[in-house]
Write a protein that binds this DNA or RNA. Structure first.
Lengths: 234, 234
DNA sequence: GAATCAAGTTTATCTGACAATCTGCCAATG
DNA sequence: CATTGGCAGATTGTCAGATAAACTTGATTC
């Protein structure tokens, strides 16, 4: 395989340059972009081709276009990403062990921050426990997965490190598959682990909480289908 | 607020229906779709509008279009998914301290992985030291920043946790402005810290390495411009 | 049988046009 | 004076038609 010759798709190039433009100018959501006509002229392409580029970015909400108003900068809609990509079979190609390792790094890494903020704001612990309580009343897999995701997201959120929330949202997309293969018998184990983690944090036993969380996340590794079988195909 | 009428964008609707079509027909990557003309006719819209819909899905690789071949179902381009998080709302609203905290969590989090792999592969340490040596020969800020970024990226890369590489690349963009205010007098301090970290890892003293790295990254905090002045604007 | 060439298919891009929708201004109204 | 209503301009949404570029396929040639 040589260098994978970048098939010069015009609209793709333009989409990249548009993204770069937004970053370079330091624009934030709501800020206005030049009109389609102006952008097309400045890129030296037809308005139609530029339009296809904005459509690409627009699908995920990175740019928004409204008649009469013009183009504005938006923020990515992870729900779109999740919905469009969730059904796709080849997400399993993502190396499961890397995903698990990454989650462990991020989630255990925030624990000191969470513990510190928990001391000053008791409502953090309450919210975490409340979400976990809801988890006990889940009666189908979809709901269970939804709430499990919410618990872990809330944990990250409680650290105050907002960028990590963004990363977690992306990881969640790739992780969904693992979660959906959780056996019902394992539910209570997970819920119990959640509670122990929260209480350990509450008591300031950060190392203990880290160890619980690591074990909890790594339990997914047992459900990874052996990929030896896959290699045989073609 | 009444119900917020969701303006139905034609190409968005078509994109959803196209996705549904793929799911319903049970198509997998490589399978062929009808031609643009046929799809446009069956949806009762112009070829152009359909094209904008395929461009939307094409951004993430869900469908691919090649001249002469037609439309085919593609595989999700994870690079696109991860790169797009630069526009995640929670990342856009992140303040400098969160960015610094996030880097500390990620970079210290990978250290155990790096140390483990370093034991099996001596070239990892060599590459890190080589990059750091180059850093000493930097004679202007641009080059210094470039090499500093490369060192930290290499550190993450050495952990083998590929998702984190994508995340740090995004963080780098947001971090650049801190780096660019580094005084020349501080350069050698940073280079020295890099070396100490690598050596600590080499000797398996992970906690020491973590502490050095934390201090090193948090040194950026001193250069944060007080944001009281900013609030006054506008 | 393998390589070469030509015709057909399909997407890529452009030009030009009109419709739909929003913004901002200004006059009419109470 | 404040509110409403409407008009003009600006901007995106959609369409039709045409040409170029890239690929596929099958026939031809050696």
């Amino acid at each position: 395989m040589i260098e994978s010759i970048g098939k010069a798709r015009l609209s793709d190039i333009v989409a990249d340059r548009l993204k770069q433009y937004i970053v370079d100018e330091g624009l934030s959501p709501g800020d206005r972009l030049p009109t389609e006509g102006q952008l097309a002229a400045s890129f030296g392409i037809s308005r139609l081709s530029l339009r296809e580029a904005t459509k690409s970015l627009g699908f995920l909400g990175i740019v928004e276009a409204r008649p009469g108003r013009g183009l504005t900068v938006g923020s990515v809609r992870m729900d779109r990403v999740t919905r469009v990509i969730g059904f796709h079979p080849d997400l399993l190609k993502a190396d499961p062990l890397s995903l698990i390792g990454t989650r462990v790094v991020i989630e255990t890494g925030v624990l000191p921050h969470v513990a510190r903020r928990m001391r000053d704001d008791p409502s953090i612990r309450e919210r975490l426990l409340a979400t976990n309580a809801e988890l006990e009343s889940a009666d189908n897999l979809t709901r269970f997965v939804e709430l499990d995701i919410r618990f872990h997201r809330l944990l990250i959120e409680s650290s105050g490190l907002t960028p990590l929330i963004a990363f977690t949202d992306v990881l969640t997309v790739f992780f969904r598959r693992f979660r959906e293969s959780v056996k019902k018998a394992e539910w209570s184990t997970g819920i119990q682990a959640h509670n122990q983690i929260v209480e350990a944090l509450h008591e300031g036993r950060i190392d203990a909480a880290s160890e619980l969380l690591r074990t909890h996340i790594e339990s997914h590794a047992r459900r990874i289908p052996s990929n030896k079988a896959e290699k045989r195909e073609k």
